[in-house]
Simulated assay, not measured.
Amino acid sequence: MKNIAIFASGEGTNAERIVRYFLENSTIRVAIIITNKPNAGVIKRAESLGIHALFLTKEELQGERIMEVLKEHDIDFIVLAGYLAKISDEILHIFPNHIINIHPSLLPKYGGKGMYGLKVHQAVLDAKDKESGITIHYINSEYDKGEVIVQEKCEVLDSDTAESLAERVHKLEYKYFPETIEKLLS
């Protein structure tokens, strides 16, 4: 059995899709969801799905506590799903090429610290790009600079707003993120 820890900071729609995708899988499971926000919506989503959710402070996420949690849950793989904090160098060292992230643009465009959510989609529109999409990538010590695993694209329409583009990008995330995790762990 491969055990996944999902790190999320927000509502947790991607985390929920990943959990649901693996509910009937006999070799891969989401063992825990970890958040850095005490009131994150992902906590309620996790609880409704029977998945343990744990809030950790910034200090706990950078210290021994996070290492204890990952060991306690026998974690093999870490998935960042809307996680808006930097992963410690210690975790990067212990989980090389076993931590992935999803970004709502075609990296290297519109990545880096502070580029998330509607900010990314507005940047795509401001640049008048004709396509956008998602990038699933390994993480390293720099924001959105890890090796790309897969990119999936969608058209940017002249009538798009940041919200309408976000909606199409979310559909790509929901489809391809769980599938990519499964391929990597199989």
Rank of each mutant, 00 (worst) to 15 (best):
128 K>N: 05
128 K>E: 06
106 L>M: 09
83 Y>P: 10
100 I>E: 02
96 P>H: 05
126 D>S: 11
123 A>N: 05
123 A>V: 12
106 L>P: 07
111 G>K: 10
90 E>M: 15
95 F>Y: 07
97 N>P: 15
109 K>W: 08
138 Y>R: 01
87 I>R: 05
97 N>I: 10
124 V>F: 01
119 K>C: 04
100 I>V: 04
89 D>F: 01
82 G>F: 15
113 K>C: 11
114 G>L: 07
83 Y>W: 13
79 V>H: 07
111 G>T: 07
123 A>E: 04
111 G>N: 09
86 K>D: 11
113 K>V: 11
130 K>L: 04
134 I>F: 09
129 D>P: 14
125 L>T: 03
123 A>C: 07
120 V>W: 03
131 E>R: 04
125 L>A: 06
100 I>Y: 12
79 V>C: 07
91 I>K: 06
93 H>K: 15
108 P>L: 08
80 L>N: 06
91 I>E: 10
107 L>N: 04
116 Y>W: 14
113 K>F: 04
121 H>W: 10
119 K>R: 12
99 I>W: 05
117 G>K: 14
110 Y>P: 11
138 Y>D: 01
127 A>Y: 02
98 H>I: 09
130 K>M: 04
80 L>A: 04
101 N>Q: 08
124 V>M: 05
135 T>I: 03
105 S>D: 04
94 I>V: 15
120 V>P: 15
86 K>S: 12
118 L>P: 11
101 N>W: 15
126 D>M: 13
110 Y>A: 06
84 L>G: 06
121 H>M: 14
104 P>T: 01
99 I>K: 01
115 M>D: 02
89 D>S: 13
127 A>K: 02
88 S>Q: 09
